[in-house]
Design a protein around this nucleic acid. Sequence first.
DNA 1: TCTGGGGTCCTAGGACCC
DNA 2: TCTGGGGTCCTAGGACCC
Length: 456
Amino acid sequence: MLFALVDCDNCYVSCERVFNPSLEGKVVVVLSNNDGCVVARSPEAKAAGIPEGTPFFQLAERFPNLEIHALSSNYTLYGDMSRRVMNILRQSAPDIFVYSIDEAFLMLDESPLTQTDFKRWGEDLAARVRRWTGMPVSIGIARTKTLAKMASKFAKRYKGYNKCCFIDTEQQRLKALSLFPVEDVWGIGRRHAARLKERGIQTALDFTHLSADSVRRAMTVTGLRTWMELCGRDCISLEHLPRKQTICTSRSFPKMLISCEALSVPVSGFAARCAFKLRQQRSMAQFVTVFLSTNPFREDLDQFSLGRTVALPAPAASDPEIIKAALAALDACVAAAQQKLVIDYLELQNEPQTIGLRPADFQWKRAGVIVSGIVPDSEIQTNFLDIPTKLKEKLHALSCVADSINARHGEESIQVASAMRTVDPETGKALTFRNSILHSRRSPFYTTDLRDIIQV
DNA sequence: TCTGGGGTCCTAGGACCC
DNA sequence: TCTGGGGTCCTAGGACCC
């Protein structure tokens, strides 16, 4: 068995360039929600030294002489382009595992009967994806997934590979390991890389020379798996549950929020979004968690973060049920935050110089909803004599109808009112958590909205 | 002024049970 | 005087990924 890892080059930037070729060869970055940080960079941006995660507002002062094209993220466009690329990959290999929006593993049959020239096959596939979608991809092929990831980095880094690197023989494996920095290995993050370097481990090859025992001690079995994969033994399984075990929707707010009332609007929206994701994977959740946190960058303000979980009476995936539980969890969060303020107040009264002072309310910068205890909806036990069960079924059916209306007429065509209680004073339109996110530099929805279709 | 979002896995340690 | 042993479950926190 061989694994091919197909990875889109600079995915978000490449999506933008497909529809706006004038960005070709320029310094381009794509920003996170609210135009916060740099999340994707063109090769030119990387070469210019722009680090990933740089706050947008710092770009101008840190790179005054650079002409930077900064775009808001357009996840609708990226998701659609990703789907097109994955469909082409699916035609080339029957067994494919989509690992993220820009990556997929392809399982390749290596039996002597097939006698495929894999290097050539990979080059053809990359060329086909490019021709049919405009997206550049790099392909790594090897006997383990970790080695395939490594191969794809070589394919990306050196033009000579013609978009595909095949690590085939034992000599090629050792050579590749010796050229590969240990911090770039899939599964070795910043922390472990720093500790390894302290011990003089620089390359992936050095890492494989450690004993299995010492790797296990320092990096647990996950590190040991990486070690074995680099040695050529396939042991990272992709038997991933197609159903996620937790689902989370969270956002930072453009402006900080204080009151429970103000928080209830985005929290309802996050809850509805989680409920939608549950229905998409045909599952239901048993628990709903809400978390809040203040702005860690504002050292002048009191910092606090907390979360509260509410158990649902029965597994659910309808908007009203998940929202109701989320609002209960939000109430619990706000009550706990109030309690913390009271304790802080009592502490202030202990010191003569702070007697009479009252701590300021917390200013919340970020909130989120997590649903957990996820079970397939086919396994839900129903009791036909139970009236609440009947009501549950109706609520679920109602949400499914809303899903199909939104699929047909666009996201947020119809939704639960508690997620849109505020109105934009300027436009008079209902404000939801999604349309209140800033993305002033977003490209059009070229592939998913007829009004945005390119005119030639 | 302005600083992202969504996941998984593993381990240690405490609570609890008989 | 002398105070066990074995197990499960849950949670928080750390580490990793894109």
